[in-house]
Every structure is written in C-alpha cells, then in structure tokens.
C-alpha cells in the first residue's frame, strides 16, 4: 500500500535474540567487539545502524541485520562469544516479522493500533518501546521520525497486517 501520506510494507529483516545471564555480564565488551555495536543498556535505546541492537530487557537485545549472509556471519560470531557462558544467542529470523509503517500519517495510523504517547519519546533518533499493537505484543521501533518497524511474532504477522491495512485504507480514503 503506498501513497505519500502512508506506506505499509514487509521488509526482509533477519534477527537474533541475545540474552546474558548474570555470570555473563562481563562478556559485554566481547559482544560489542563481535557485533560491532555497543549494546544499549537502557529501556528504549537503539544502537547501531545495521546491524542495529534494540533493548528488550536488562541484558537482552534484539539484534537486526538486513542480508542473510551478514546475519549468518554475525550470528556465528556472537554465538561463539556466548558458547561457554550462561548466555543464549538465538536466531530469531523466523520467529519475528517486521511490518514497516512510514509516511506523514504513520503516527496517526499507530494511534489506531496502540496506546503509545509519542509525545513522550525523544524528539529525534531511533527508539523502541514494547506495546500491544492491535492486542498483539509488539516492539515498536522508530527508525526515523516518520518511519516505524513493528516487530511482531511471525505467527501473528497476518493479524497485525490485516488490521493495519484497514487503518491505512481508512486514512487514505477518508483522510481521518
């Protein structure tokens, strides 16, 4: 779906979940070296630009790449760092889907999907917040002021997509 006000898409994004147990917190530097990203340590923070790391929980991140080869190599490097530690590095490429919402009406569309108050977000920069979007657990990830990625469980992608299609269609047709 496409016009200047609002666009809906399904970008191909690969990802992994990295989670460190308490005894593995000391591996942060190793992880940074392996991934090329200083992993964020506060809620909402996003670090890097492909690969990019989103804060999910204390010592838990969703690390994204675009490109299967890049993903495979990164996954391998990071898994090696975590191999003998109380840490899990799990390929999440098939567990998670990304729905992209962009355009000047993107936040108007999101207002019909979730209860997030974007006025409380940092004015600029990437940011991410977990929310229920269309009653589905989602990580709402702002890449740019009018560009969002909604990270949702793959099995619920169809549901969220259908909901957003309806919202976007109303915004396109009725300018509401």
């Amino acid at each position: 779906m496409r016009n200047d006000r609002i666009r809906l898409g399904l970008p191909l994004v690969a990802g992994m979940v990295v989670r460190l147990g308490a005894s593995a917190h000391g591996r942060l530097d190793d992880l940074a070296r392996a991934s090329g990203i200083v992993l964020p340590d506060r809620p909402g923070e996003v670090a890097g630009e492909m690969p990019v790391a989103l804060w999910r929980a204390p010592f838990e991140w969703l690390v994204l790449t675009q490109g299967r080869n890049q993903h495979a190599q990164l996954l391998d490097r990071v898994q090696q760092v975590a191999a003998d530690a109380t840490a899990l590095v799990v390929d999440y490429s098939d567990a998670s889907s990304v729905v992209e919402l962009s355009g000047s009406a993107a936040t108007a569309a999101l207002a019909r999907v979730c209860t997030l108050d974007f006025a409380t977000w940092p004015e600029s920069g990437a940011y991410c917040v977990p929310a229920a979007c269309a009653r589905v657990s989602t990580l709402v990830h702002r890449l740019a002021p009018a560009r969002f990625w909604l990270h949702v469980d793959r099995s619920l992608e169809q549901y969220l997509w259908t909901w957003l299609q309806e919202v976007v269609s109303d915004l396109e047709d009725f300018d509401q």
């Binding site: 989670r19 308490a22 109380t86």
Partner: peptide, 16 residues
C-alpha cells in the same frame, strides 16, 4: 531464584 545462573528464551515460532 535470582541466584541461579540460568537464562531462558522462548523459540516456539522460530521453528516449524
């Protein structure tokens, strides 16, 4: 049991 050295990650939909 916060003293236990263990982590968990659900992977239900990563696999078919």
């Amino acid at each position: 049991w916060p003293g236990l050295d263990v982590v968990t990650v659900p992977v239900t939909t990563q696999f078919g």
